[in-house]
Amino acid sequence: MHGNDATLDEPADDDPAFLALIDDDGRVEPRDAMPQGYRQSLVRQIAQHAHSEIIGMQPEGSWIGRAPSLRRKAILMAKVQDEAGHGLYLYAAAETLGVDRVDLLDRLHAGKQKYSSIFNYPTPTWADIGAIGWLVDGAAITNQVPLTRCSFGPYARAMVRICKEESFHQRQGFEILHTLSHGTTEQHEMAQQAVDRWWWPSLMMFGPADDESPNSARSMRWGIKRFSNDELRQRFVDMTVPQARALGLTLPDPDLAYDEATGHWHFGEIDFSELFDVINGNGPLNAERMAHRRGAHERGAWVRAAADAYAAKHASRSAGTAA
């Protein structure tokens, strides 16, 4: 429920009572007093998450018209639609913290807030749609499942719904790649190349290594993050390597090896310089994604204004009685 009147007497970032609540695995709700840093941190993270959902509609959306079977077209449409829904749930969670969706969108459009850099990579072939589902959604789900226990109630609740709905997203991607991998030589090649393109970017989705991640420790102290970037990345690699084998595809990392001692898959060094380049807006498609997004928003302005005007004129009309 929303009541966006933030309390004036905010506790300090290290307020003992607040930290005790977190340590007790308690939940923070919108109208509770909370440290300013906690609120800002959540707004930034939830907004970026929401922006990623709606910008993430584009690389896949461009294939709705070109999906190679009607069944695939229906699945992809439903998936991209889910992403709009997920963006919507997340913006609503952010709004409980006293910000407005319009303002968050304005900040996205002005380039003042980020979205996940993964969506600045191109989708040149149909196999990329499979690779996004399998790897990008797989990584996203690995990140999101612990967020269902995030200390901030509305974010956690949004994530429960999102994780439930996304369970088909990764499977459909896996299925696309499996079909391609076991199809013609040309199709197999297409699948392998897509996996080669998306493997490293999907590992980078977990963020910088723990010792390079300035905000991570604080987020963990506040119960927003439950596991570190490196822990989640390792979990993803461990889940994904056997799946690649089932697909009959290889992962582009010569250092990938199972470590009997730890029970984990060891993987090679990640080249984060590319990630930082992409984060800073130098990704191949950053400008195009933003232009598309701004264009849709600007083209819709007259529609939104018309609906407002109509509502004002017809405000006296009463709605049906609740029952």
């Binding site: 919507l88 609740r157 109509y310 509502a311 017809h314």
Partner: peptide, 8 residues
């Protein structure tokens, strides 16, 4: 279940 935006 959640919230959304709508003109009316």
């Amino acid at each position: 279940v959640g919230s959304l935006h709508a003109p009316d």
